[in-house]
Amino acid sequence: MNPEILFFFEVLIGGLLAGVMYSLVALGFVLIYKASSVFNFAQGAMVFFAVLSFVGFMELGLPFFLALLVTVGLMILVGMATERFVLRPLVNQHEDTLLMATIGLAFVLEGLAQLVWGVEVRRLDLGIRDEPIMRIADATGIFVSVLDLVAGLVAAVMVAVLAIVFSRTKVGLGLRAVADGHGAAMSIGIPLRQVWVFVWAAAGIVALVAGMLWGARAGVQFALVGLALKALPVLIIGGFTSVPGVIVAGLIVGASEKIAEVYIGPYFGGGIEGWAPYMLAVLFLMFRPEGLFGERIIRRV
C-alpha cells in the first residue's frame, strides 16, 4: 500500500480508538441524562474517583477481583449518597440548578479522591498488553494493541446492553418516564429514589470501567478529569439522549481530532487536539443542536 495512505489509516485508527475511550465516559453521562434529565457534570470526576479508588485498594494489598468488588460497592455508595444529599433536596428544580449542583459534586469527588489517595501519578496494570499486535502490524502495517481491542469490545457490549435496557425493559421505560418529568413519574407510582440510586450506581460502574481502561493507557492521574471533559463535545454531537449516538460521535471526535492534529496541526505549531472537539461541537450546535441522533428539542412557553 502507498505509505501516505497507510499513514492516514494509521492516524484514523488511532483516532477511532481514542474515540472509543471518550464514548465510554459519555455513556455514563447519557445514562443519567436519559433517566433523570440531569446533566451530570461530575461524570469525569466519577471516572477519576472510581479508578483512583480501585488502584488505591490494590495498593492496600487487595487482590484484583476483591478490589474491583469493593470499588463497585463504593460507587454504589456514592450513587446512594448523591441521591440522598444532592438530588433528593433538589427534586423538581430547574435543570440548570441541578447542573450546577453536579459541578459542585464533581469538585467534592475530585477533592476527596486526592485527599484520601494522594496526588501522585499511578500505574494501573490490568494484565492486558498495550503494545501493537505484531501479526496485524506485519500484515497491514497498522498498529493496534490488545488493550484497544478490549476497549472497543467493552464499549460495544455496554452500549448494546444499555440500549436494550432502555428500549425493551420495564425498568428502561420507568427511567424514561422519570426523565420526562420528576413529578409526573412520581404521581404514577414510579419510585423516584430507587430509580435515581440505580442510575447513579450504574453510571458509577460505567465510570469505573472507563477509568480502568483509561488508567491502563495513560496512568491514573488528575489529567483524566481534563480528558473526560472531552466527553462533552461527544455528547453534543451524538445527542444527549441517544446511547448509540454516543459511540458514533465518540468515533467522529476521536478520528477528527487526530486527523486535524496530524494534517493541520503542523501549520500552527500543534495543540489543535485541545480545542478541535469543542469547535466541532459548536459547529454542530449551529446547524443541528439536537445532535446526530438526539430527540428534537421543542420548547414551549
Partner: peptide, 17 residues
Amino acid sequence: SALEQVIFGVLIILFMI
C-alpha cells in the same frame, strides 16, 4: 488544595439547595 476543592463543592451543593 484538595480540601479546598471539597469545601467549594460542598458549599456549592449547599447553596444550590
